[in-house]
């Protein structure tokens, strides 16, 4: 039972992170390897706003989320915008370089010690009993809820709203989208903003649970196989992929070897790439596009 809870929490973490990969990839065909760093930046944002708005935790959280959105848009406006039309490698490398830059800058600004934004907000991480013999932390529960809400909203946004439909259209055929009057830069900036928002939210929650330190980048990177296993251009796939990877990881760590934790996602990724490279729900022609 405890295992099931652990799987649910881990799957939520991966899902919340990997939807950022999917959003950016689906819209602009760029793989953002700076996602882990952007997550961390979101968490530091919460830490900063928490001390700024002390006593008003909700305001602090809202401000931190808005900050994340803004950062994402800024990343596009300042850097990724220039990478349109460059090769896949160049764009990916640009995100890697951005990640390095951010990591250095964050250490410069916030130091290397572990931070606890939750305490800063004045909240405690209560432990809640689930069923007879399992427990979930309050933040863990929040993670599961946040992931559910985020995915619900994203699905609704992409299906129902005009801008969501435009985003899908631009991802599928950018040339035609431009011809139909859709400003691609606006769409791309929006995608980066949303991706960073969800990533930042994930970062904030993880930091609230386990403290804020540089290992968070590794979690960001481990969520990436989840996105790819599900199919890089499918949100539903990211959800399923996260579940598969979280299950495998929790079980392997529990029954075999804790050291495996960092490699299990990549083992599954490799297996998937061999068998079905486009993922569970990804579209097949993606392979030829890149």
């Amino acid at each position: 039972m405890q295992l099931a809870v652990n799987i649910a929490v881990l799957a939520s973490i991966y899902a919340l992170i990997s939807c950022g990969y999917v959003l950016i990839y689906r819209v602009s065909r760029v793989l953002s390897l700076a996602h882990g760093e952007l997550m961390m930046l979101g968490a530091y944002g919460l830490y900063a706003t928490a001390s700024l708005f002390s006593g008003q935790p909700l305001v602090a959280v809202a401000a931190a989320l808005a900050l994340s959105l803004l950062v994402g848009v800024l990343v596009y406006v300042a850097l990724m915008w220039r990478m349109t039309g460059e090769s896949v490698l160049a764009a990916v490398l640009a995100t890697i370089a951005l990640g390095i830059l951010l990591r250095g800058a964050m250490i410069l600004m916030f130091g290397t010690q572990t931070r606890h934004p939750l305490e800063e907000l004045g909240w405690t991480n209560a432990s809640i009993e689930v069923g007879d013999d399992a427990r979930i932390s309050g933040v863990g529960l929040a993670l599961v809820l946040a992931t559910t809400v985020c995915y619900g909203l994203l699905f609704a946004f992409l299906r129902m709203t005009r801008w969501g439909i435009r985003m899908r259209a631009a991802g599928q055929n950018p040339l035609l989208a431009a011809q139909r009057g859709i400003g691609l830069h606006v769409i791309y900036a929006l995608a980066w903003g949303l991706a960073t928002l969800t990533g930042g939210l994930a970062g904030m929650l993880i930091a609230s649970d386990a403290g804020l330190e540089s290992t968070m980048v590794v979690i960001g990177l481990k969520a990436f196989p989840a996105a790819l296993v599900g199919g890089l251009d499918s949100l539903a796939g990211a959800l399923l992929g996260s579940l598969v990877i979280a299950t495998a990881e929790v079980l392997m760590v529990y029954y075999v070897d804790p050291l495996l934790s960092d490699v299990v996602p990549f083992f599954i990724l490799l297996a998937m790439l061999v068998v079905r490279p486009w993922g569970f729900f990804g579209s097949r022609e993606e392979l030829d596009r890149v």
């Binding site: 896949v88 990916v92 990436f224 490699v263 990549f266 990724l269 061999v274 490279p277 030829d288 890149v290």
Partner: peptide
């Protein structure tokens, strides 16, 4: 993997192999 994959996907598969080699080393 390069026989089947190109570009981004290939980069990702080599990335995965990196983690596996490092894991074996550790």
């Amino acid at each position: 993997p390069s026989l089947r994959l190109r570009g981004l996907y290939l980069a990702v598969s080599t990335l995965a192999l990196h983690f596996i080699v490092i894991y074996l080393g550790s």
